[in-house]
Simulated assay, not measured.
Amino acid sequence: MEAQLQFFKVFTDNPTKGNPAACALLSHWPDLDVLQAIASEAEQVVTAFIVPVADALYQYQIRWFSCSQEINLCGHGTLAAAALVRQLQGEGCYQFLSQHGDLEVTASFSALQMVLPQWLPCPETQTELPPALLACQSIDYFQTRDLVLVLADEQAVQQFQPDFTLIQQLEQHALIVSAFSPPDTYVLRYFAPGIGINEDIATGSAQCSLAPYWFKKTGRTEFKVRQLSLIDACFSVAINTQQLHLKAQAVNLPHLTRLIATIA
């Protein structure tokens, strides 16, 4: 089986900015080692693979891979998949089904809007911070899938010095540091060395933890989001008691498209 591997920049409409991702539409699932080999060779932050659901025009199964392993619930990989489907089928509301939850993306030519789950803090599983993280003087912390440190302000987030060896030893999926920047913005950085991503450029799934927290703290229902990585990327989120919506854009990099061969 042959397929096209296409490349995108997500959380931007500028091909020189945003978070890189690759995506391939397959007719069926090859073996795990085949998918991992393709993702490793692609050398992107994440590579998404989608397979159409039989007799369902707007539904796809989806899986996400870093260069080193399969990962779960990747927002920016899903947006890349939605951009690919938009390119092939046009505007529509598409569902992406995975073992870690289902995501829905409304794809128009002007924007991609994704519905995300809300992850609330788990106080019953709260653990003490390692001493090295206590030293960073967070004003709050909580855990969902990820461990979140709330810092005093944007400058503290920008100046945070990650210890990747320590972070890799955490039991949580990743470490997020965040702060509120009045009047309507929260900032973050996202570290996931355990899945081969030391610091992510822009992270959709981080908003599952952060948007509910900042909604509770500020009462705001709409936020601008800035991830303080080395490459500019921007998006917005809107939240209510039922749903969380992330709005962004993605741009295709057609000159990078390549054919891939998978085992039949």
Rank of each mutant, 00 (worst) to 15 (best):
S178H: 00
A233G: 15
L166D: 09
G204S: 03
T218R: 00
T221R: 14
P162W: 02
V237R: 08
Y213D: 15
V237T: 13
I201A: 03
H173T: 14
R226T: 08
Q159M: 13
K216F: 10
P182Y: 04
I167Q: 05
Q243I: 11
A192Y: 01
Q207I: 06
L188I: 00
F164H: 08
K224L: 04
F191R: 00
P182N: 11
Q243M: 12
L244N: 09
V237A: 08
G194H: 06
E171Q: 15
I195Q: 02
C234D: 12
T218W: 01
L210M: 06
L188S: 14
A202L: 12
L188K: 01
W214Q: 06
T185Q: 09
A206E: 07
I239Y: 07
K217P: 05
A192M: 08
R226A: 06
T221S: 15
E199D: 11
L228D: 07
A174C: 12
V237H: 03
G194C: 11
F191M: 05
A179H: 00
P212I: 04
L175S: 09
G194D: 10
C208Q: 09
V177I: 11
Y190G: 05
F223G: 05
K224E: 12
S236K: 14
P193H: 08
L244W: 03
A192S: 15
V225M: 03
Q161T: 13
E222K: 13
G196P: 02
A202P: 07
T218D: 03
Q243R: 15
G196T: 08
E222Y: 03
T241W: 05
D163K: 06
S236P: 01
R226L: 13
E171A: 14
D232C: 03
V187L: 02
S178F: 01
T165H: 10
L175D: 09
E199M: 06
K216C: 13
E222D: 08
L228W: 08
L188M: 12
I239M: 10
I231W: 05
V187A: 00
L170D: 07
L244Y: 01
K217A: 13
A211L: 06
S178P: 00
L230E: 14
Y190S: 09
F223Y: 06
